[in-house]
Simulated assay, not measured.
Amino acid sequence: MTVRLRPHHLLCMLTFIGKGYTEAFTENYVRIAARLSDGEDILVVEGPDDICAPLLDEPDPHCWRKSVTDRDERARKAVEALLGRPAGPGAVICPDAEFLARMRDAFAAGTIRKACHRCEWSALCTNVASSGYDGVLVAATQG
């Protein structure tokens, strides 16, 4: 199986420490973090993904808003520039230790954070990154 993620969630997963919009959202994200930590591949998708799923039954879910799709585009471009390969819809990414380290180094340096502009979680993510990613739930297992 694969975890379906929209491009900006490639950034969000780097700092996820178990906080989210709702209890259902957070519980779902914790399960996804475990799958990613176990090395399940990521399939990059357009629009709402596996992380968004618990929010889609809300009236006017933000997952469909232009501000979020714009965030996806900025994240896609940043990740592609960093990795030197496609990171848009249809791309398959293995969240192994090398990938996570490279992404986290760039995130902490601020070089892939244009998509984070005006995100309500940005300060939390900055704090997590500055702590050396202490307590993150997506971490490649050593096999």
Rank of each mutant, 00 (worst) to 15 (best):
M1R: 11
V3N: 01
L5F: 09
L5E: 03
P7K: 10
P7T: 12
P7F: 10
L11Q: 04
L11K: 07
C12V: 06
M13L: 15
M13H: 01
Y21F: 14
N28Q: 12
Y29P: 04
V30G: 02
I32G: 09
A34T: 13
L36T: 02
D38V: 00
D38Y: 01
E40S: 06
L43R: 15
V45Y: 02
G47A: 11
G47Q: 10
D49R: 08
D50T: 07
P54C: 13
L55F: 07
P61M: 11
P61H: 12
C63E: 11
C63Y: 09
W64V: 10
W64M: 07
W64L: 14
K66P: 12
K66N: 11
K66Y: 08
T69L: 13
D70M: 07
R71N: 04
E73V: 10
R74F: 13
A75T: 09
A75N: 08
A75M: 12
K77E: 14
K77Y: 01
E80R: 04
P86C: 12
P86A: 13
P86Y: 07
A87P: 06
A87N: 05
A91L: 06
V92E: 11
E98D: 15
F99K: 01
R102P: 00
R104Y: 09
D105P: 00
A109Q: 14
G110H: 06
A115K: 02
R118F: 15
C119H: 05
S122G: 07
A123S: 12
L124W: 02
L124K: 03
T126W: 05
V128G: 03
S130P: 00
S131Q: 13
S131M: 11
V138T: 12
A139W: 00
Q142P: 00
G143D: 14
